[in-house]
């Protein structure tokens, strides 16, 4: 049965060494999670790259916003013909504003939804305290969690590299 081990570190280079060792002994990037109070770019890169599928959700939102703006201005103009200011019934230039705004609006909404979905938020389990987590990891410490069935081996790696605290979760 796999367990989750959490190690707490004060020094960033210690945490980085642990990640390197874990990768070397055969753990996959999926098994390892690095927790920090701010983004540490090179470790994020090491554990999966900086790219994110959020971009697809933003693109979908933007296209949807643009298309719905075109549909909205066309349908409303043709359903209720209102010739004003010498402009044609379907006047594209003034509609550019509406198209731009709805593209941005839906792109942003889908951006937020994408963020929430890909981060798997809200994490209700964390509220009840079941997730491997320590308060100081949002403050001044770094954490590493590993999903493993070789508990002793991981503990040894953590201890060798200066873990201040090690916790075990089933």
């Amino acid at each position: 049965m796999k367990k989750v081990l959490l190690g707490k570190f004060t020094y960033l280079d210690d945490a980085e060494k642990v990640i390197d060792e874990l990768l070397k002994v055969g753990y996959s990037k999926k098994d390892i999670s690095f927790i920090s109070p701010f983004p540490v770019e090179h470790i994020i890169e090491k554990l999966g790259g900086s790219d994110s599928p959020v971009k697809y959700s933003v693109f979908t939102g933007g296209v949807l916003g643009f298309a719905s703006a075109i549909a909205l201005v066309l349908i409303t103009s043709l359903a209720y013909i209102l010739p004003v200011g010498g402009k044609p019934v379907v006047a594209w230039i003034p509609y550019v504003i509406v198209m731009f705004e709805l593209t941005v609006l839906l792109g942003s909404i889908f951006n937020l939804l994408g963020l929430i979905a890909f981060c798997r938020l809200p994490d209700i389990v964390l509220f009840i305290g079941w997730r491997p987590f320590l308060p100081s990891l949002t403050d001044d410490k770094f954490g590493i969690t590993v999903s493993t069935d070789r508990v002793d081996e991981v503990k040894a790696i953590f201890e060798r590299n200066g873990a201040e605290e090690i916790r075990e979760y089933s």
Binding site: I43, D51, K55, L115, C119, P122, T145
Partner: peptide, 26 residues
């Protein structure tokens, strides 16, 4: 929302924040 600060969260967050900035600029 139960934010923990994992590398996966930060990865999506950074990208999402950049998109927000890119949308908000125009």
């Amino acid at each position: 929302l139960g934010w923990k600060g994992t590398d996966k969260e930060w990865r999506h967050y950074n990208r999402s924040y950049m998109f927000f900035a890119a949308f908000a600029t125009p």
